[in-house]
Computed example of a mutant assay.
Amino acid sequence: MQFATIVAAAAEGQHGNVMLETIWFPIVALAAFGIGALVTFSYRDVSNRHAAKAEAYARSQTLVRAGEADAEAGH
Rank of each mutant, 00 (worst) to 15 (best):
M1A: 15
F3A: 08
A4D: 08
A4G: 11
T5N: 09
T5H: 03
T5M: 09
I6C: 04
I6A: 13
I6S: 09
A8P: 03
A9C: 07
A9Y: 01
A9T: 08
A9K: 03
A11F: 01
A11Q: 00
A11S: 05
E12S: 11
G13I: 00
Q14A: 08
Q14L: 01
Q14S: 03
H15V: 15
N17V: 10
N17S: 13
V18Q: 01
V18L: 03
M19R: 04
M19T: 05
M19G: 08
L20F: 06
E21M: 14
T22I: 04
T22L: 10
I23E: 02
W24A: 12
F25Y: 05
F25H: 07
P26Y: 01
I27L: 15
V28D: 03
A31H: 02
A32E: 03
A32K: 04
A32G: 06
G34A: 11
I35H: 03
I35V: 07
A37Q: 03
A37T: 01
A37R: 06
V39M: 11
V39R: 13
V39A: 09
T40L: 15
T40K: 12
T40R: 11
T40Y: 08
S42D: 00
Y43L: 10
Y43S: 11
R44S: 11
R44H: 04
S47T: 14
S47D: 15
N48D: 06
R49N: 13
A52Y: 04
A52F: 07
A52W: 05
A54Q: 04
E55F: 08
A58P: 01
R59S: 11
Q61C: 05
T62E: 15
T62F: 04
L63F: 01
V64Y: 10
R65L: 15
G67E: 03
E68R: 09
E68V: 13
A69V: 10
D70F: 06
D70R: 12
E72W: 06
A73V: 15
A73E: 15
A73C: 10
G74I: 02
